[in-house]
């Protein structure tokens, strides 16, 4: 059991005219090695929720456990937790500050108090994982393209060797190629290193392709928790929340209504293609 969230509430601006619930009685457990997709409309509490998981925000009520330890006990080492639960914010390139790419990636491991050699090795490894070679090391991070900046920022978190990696819309504002590359790299971290991944995204296609489990947030509450197939079966409810199922789900449903014999719970284009071809041959 990596992360366990028990009945957490978060109230913004408690006691003022602005007071409002950002999270309301949220519960879930994320196991080691899971790839979880977190979806929800803007303002549904996703970003607030993930900031609780590494202790940046404190829940107004409720408890969070990391590997069985409650993170709200007084002597809990929050900085160590932040090294273990890596959080990549939305538009992470806005956090870059060093004179060159390599030093920026070193910032995280340096804060962990590691030796010079270890820091160096980790920075190299992390930059390799996001596909940036040595020619980038001495460049200023501010002269890179948007996609490259974002990789540097993600590498900055990876260099801390987190056990859990949380990414808040890592592909926002990137072109399709940059988006696919970054998602591939994340998925590789999951497959090869067994890293637990929590991916916040607006794109149902991406989520359906990579995540093995989905959490759906709406107005600060968790409304669905299950495999993509289970969750996207509720596509009408999702629509009512301002979300949608992957486009292919709609085509599948349409085909079914017209009497094509394919299973209903297909969520990726590849699955649907195979099922349609099979139905075609079976005719």
């Amino acid at each position: 059991m990596a992360i366990k969230v028990e009945h957490i509430d978060h109230i913004y601006g408690a006691g003022t005219a602005f007071a409002q619930y950002a999270l309301r009685d949220v519960n879930f457990t994320i196991e080691d090695g899971e790839f979880v997709g977190l979806i929800g409309h803007t303002g549904s509490g996703k970003s607030t929720l993930i900031q609780h998981l590494n202790g940046l925000l404190r829940a107004s009520n409720g408890q969070i456990y990391y590997n069985g330890e409650c993170i709200y006990t007084n002597d809990y080492d929050m900085r160590a937790l932040r090294g273990k639960v890596g959080l990549v914010f939305q538009y992470p390139e806005h956090q870059l500050f060093e004179a060159d790419v390599f030093s920026d990636v070193c910032f995280g491991p340096k804060n962990l108090g590691l030796s010079k050699e270890e820091i160096d090795a980790r920075a190299r490894e992390a930059l390799g994982q996001v596909g940036l070679d040595e020619s980038f090391y001495r460049q200023s991070p501010f002269e890179l393209s948007g996609g490259q900046k974002r990789r540097v920022a993600i590498a900055g978190v990876l260099a801390m060797h987190p056990e859990v990696l949380i990414l808040d819309e890592p592909t926002a504002g990137l072109d399709p190629k940059g988006r696919d590359e970054i998602l591939e790299e994340i998925s590789e971290l999951h497959r090869k290193k067994g890293m637990t991944i929590i991916l916040v995204s607006h794109s149902m296609e991406d989520i359906a392709r990579y995540a093995s489990r989905l959490l759906v947030m709406n107005q600060g509450e968790k409304v669905f928790d299950g495999t993509p197939k289970e969750v996207f079966r509720h596509y009408r409810e999702l629509e009512a929340m301002g979300l949608a199922a992957p486009q292919i789900t709609y085509i599948v449903h349409e085909l079914q209504e017209r009497g094509v014999g394919i299973p209903q719970d297909l969520t990726t284009v590849e699955e649907a293609r195979d099922a349609i071809l099979q139905a075609w041959k079976g005719k």
């Binding site: 940046l56 806005h94 910032f107 804060n111």
Partner: peptide
């Protein structure tokens, strides 16, 4: 917060 997530103090 972003820098704190990277261990800044």
């Amino acid at each position: 917060k972003a820098q704190m997530a990277r261990g800044a103090d």
